[in-house]
Computed example of a mutant assay.
Amino acid sequence: MSDILSEFFEDTQAHLEQIEEHLLKLESDPAQIDLINEVFRSVHSIKGNAGLLGVLEILSIGEEYENFLESVRERGSATPEEVNEMIESLDKLKVVVQKERGESIPAPEETVSETETSVEPVQSENPESPQSSSTPVETGSDVKEHVVPEEKKITFLTFTLAGEKYGLEIVKVREIILRELVTHVPNTKPFVDGLMNLRDQVIPVFDLRRRLDISGGKAEVEERNIIVVEIAKVTTGIKVDDVTGIVALPMSRVASPKEFYGSVPTNYILGIGRTPDGPMILLDADTLCDPEELLY
């Protein structure tokens, strides 16, 4: 669990940096809906990961932030006041993340004092000494300008199916359920396991083994996980064997579906992830759970 939490905080930090970068651009042009959408996606990822791992305080702040951004997205642009509110929400989220990581949060006065001390030039004891005309001391701000930004990563929920490792983009995952009653419905397609009542919402449940035409491994598992995904505001459950965690992969570590030569139909594959534990099949949730597909 500690390894998963470490990955979560590493991924969260990357998202926070991306949000800050987008908000700086939004300050000069609040009407950039693409940037608002990017901020929403990052907040949604943080909130979703926190919910999966039970980091409740981050989940709560993330939900508030996400709901506010959703109302802005519906209008297609933000006001300067709303951009300021986004920045304030980001600051709140940062503080909660620091707290959950067990990091100390310095008081503003201490931060200013440390900054002033770090950039104060050192005075020479002899004003006429040749050292007094030496090149200026490089400050911390100068160093930061040369830092190469990290490659953007995509976070996946990982799980197993018939002994193979798979992943789904975590931004599409709403929650994970275990041992929920699924009611069989006649005259549906073979991969439809039935219907499930999810807090008074009836949703279809797909058996991913049958959906991908997979056999082998743990063919009959009494307690299988159901991953609840949401595509275009349509909710669907997907039965898998075991949910194993989350992983963040840079795009350079994701190969094209054309490099896959297994039995899974390539139209369901987003790519092949190269992880330290070996290759992982990354599934396309939009194709697996197409809201327009007929289920009977």
Rank of each mutant, 00 (worst) to 15 (best):
M1F: 11
S6W: 07
E10H: 11
E17G: 10
E17Q: 12
Q18N: 14
I19M: 02
I19W: 00
E20V: 01
L24D: 04
K25V: 08
E27I: 00
S28P: 01
A31D: 14
A31G: 11
F40D: 05
V43H: 04
S45G: 08
G48H: 04
N49G: 14
L52D: 10
L52V: 07
G54P: 09
S60V: 12
I61C: 10
E70W: 07
R75F: 04
T79Y: 05
V83L: 05
N84F: 07
E85Q: 14
D91G: 13
V95K: 11
V95E: 04
V96G: 13
V97S: 01
V97D: 03
V97I: 07
Q98R: 11
S104G: 12
P108Q: 06
E109Q: 13
T111C: 13
V112E: 00
S113F: 10
E114P: 11
E114M: 14
T117G: 14
E128C: 11
P130F: 07
Q131T: 11
S134G: 15
P136Q: 06
V137R: 09
E138M: 15
V147E: 15
V147D: 10
P149C: 08
P149N: 09
I154R: 13
T155D: 00
F156Q: 03
L157K: 09
L161F: 09
A162G: 08
G167M: 01
L168I: 06
I170Y: 05
I170C: 04
E175A: 14
I177W: 08
I177N: 07
E180N: 15
N187A: 14
P190R: 01
V192E: 02
L195W: 04
R199F: 00
Q201N: 10
V202Q: 00
V202Y: 05
R211K: 08
D213W: 03
G217P: 06
E220C: 08
E223H: 15
N225Q: 08
N225M: 07
N225W: 04
I226G: 05
V229S: 08
I231C: 03
K233C: 12
V234H: 13
K239H: 10
V240A: 04
V240Y: 06
G245P: 08
V247A: 15
A248S: 15
S256N: 07
S256K: 03
S256F: 01
E259G: 14
F260I: 07
F260V: 06
V264S: 03
T266D: 15
Y268Q: 04
R274G: 03
R274S: 08
T275R: 01
G278M: 02
I281V: 09
I281K: 01
I281Q: 03
A285W: 06
L288H: 03
L288V: 02
C289G: 01
P291Y: 02
E292A: 12
L294A: 12
Y296F: 13
